[in-house]
Amino acid sequence: MRERNSWRSIGRAAGVLLAALWLYGAAGALAALVPVQGAAAGPREIAVWVEDNGIHTGIVFPKALLDPDLVARFAAADLRDPAYAGHDYLAIGWGDRAFFIETPRWRDVRPSTVLAAALGSDETVLHVEHVARPKESIHVSRVMLDAEGFALLTAYLQTSLREGEALPGYEAHDAFYPASGRYSAIVTCNEWTGAALRRAGVPMGAWTPFSGGVMRWL
C-alpha cells in the first residue's frame, strides 16, 4: 500500500509539472502575439540583424557605429583566434551562464540545466561573436532602425554588460562576458532580445520567452 501511494504521489507531481510546462509554453506563445508597436522619430537607415539558432537569439551590431570604448571591451585577446576581431560586426546575446555555455545546440540541452535556469540565476553572461556582415536567411533577419532607436539599443547593450574577465566561447571567434540582470523563466535570453528591440522602437510581442516569438515579428 505504501509503495502504491508513493507511485500515486510521483504521478501527481509529474502531472502538475507537465501542466505547468504546458501553461508556460502556451502563455509564452500567446504573449508573443500581443503587439507592442514601435515608433520611429526619423528615417530608418541603420541596419542591425537578429539571428536565431533555435534556442538563443542575438543581435548583430556594426562595430563602426558602436562606441569605440564598448568595442574595445570585446578584445581580440579574448578570442582563441584573435584574427577574427578583424570582422566588422558583433553578434551579441544575453543569458544564464550555465545554460548558455552548456547548450550551444538542442542536443546539448539537459533537464537539470533548464530547471536551474528557470528557477532563476544572477550568473548571467553576454555571448559575443566577431562576425562578417550577416546574410539574411530563415534564421537571420535584418532590422532597420532610426538614429534614436539605435542609440537606445546600444544603451540597452551597455547596461547589460558588467566588469569582469572573459570566458572562452564555443569556437575561435567568440567569448562570454559577465553580464548584469537576473535570468529566469520570465526573463530569458529571447526576452532580452525582444525587450531590446521593443526599446529600440521595433514592433515586437509583449513577452518573448522563446526564439520563435522574437523571429515571427521580423
Rank of each mutant, 00 (worst) to 15 (best):
A20T: 14
C189W: 06
D67M: 03
G86N: 14
L161M: 07
R162I: 09
L161P: 01
E165V: 03
A14I: 11
L23Q: 11
G120P: 04
D146Y: 10
A200D: 04
T103C: 09
P203K: 07
H173K: 06
G212W: 09
A77Y: 09
E45N: 15
D174S: 05
Y89K: 00
P62S: 09
D52G: 05
G164F: 10
N5K: 10
A179D: 12
D88K: 12
K63Q: 09
R97S: 05
E123I: 04
D108V: 06
V114P: 00
L21A: 13
E163M: 01
L70M: 10
R110M: 06
F210E: 04
G205N: 10
P111V: 15
A200E: 08
A116Q: 14
S137P: 02
K63V: 03
V36W: 09
I59Y: 02
L167N: 06
H130S: 08
V109F: 06
A14W: 04
A147K: 13
F61Y: 14
D81H: 12
A118K: 13
A85I: 02
P43R: 10
A175W: 10
W22I: 14
A14Y: 01
F150T: 01
V16H: 01
L23V: 15
L79C: 03
R182W: 08
R105E: 07
R199T: 14
P209Q: 00
L167W: 11
L167S: 13
V48P: 01
E51P: 01
L65C: 05
I92M: 04
L33A: 13
Y84F: 15
G38S: 08
L33M: 15
V60T: 13
G58T: 00
V114H: 05
P82I: 00
R44Q: 15
D122C: 00
W207G: 01
R107N: 06
G169D: 12
Q37L: 08
G15R: 14
G86K: 15
P62H: 11
V71H: 07
G28M: 08
H127Y: 08
S137L: 03
A151L: 01
A13G: 11
H87M: 00
N5R: 12
L218Y: 12
L145I: 05
G25Q: 11
V48M: 01
V36D: 07
P104W: 00
A91R: 14
R105W: 07
G169K: 12
L119C: 03
D67T: 11
L145V: 04
L218H: 12
L157E: 02
D81F: 07
Y183L: 00
A19Y: 02
W22R: 09
A41W: 15
A20V: 08
N190S: 11
V187Q: 12
A32L: 00
P111I: 12
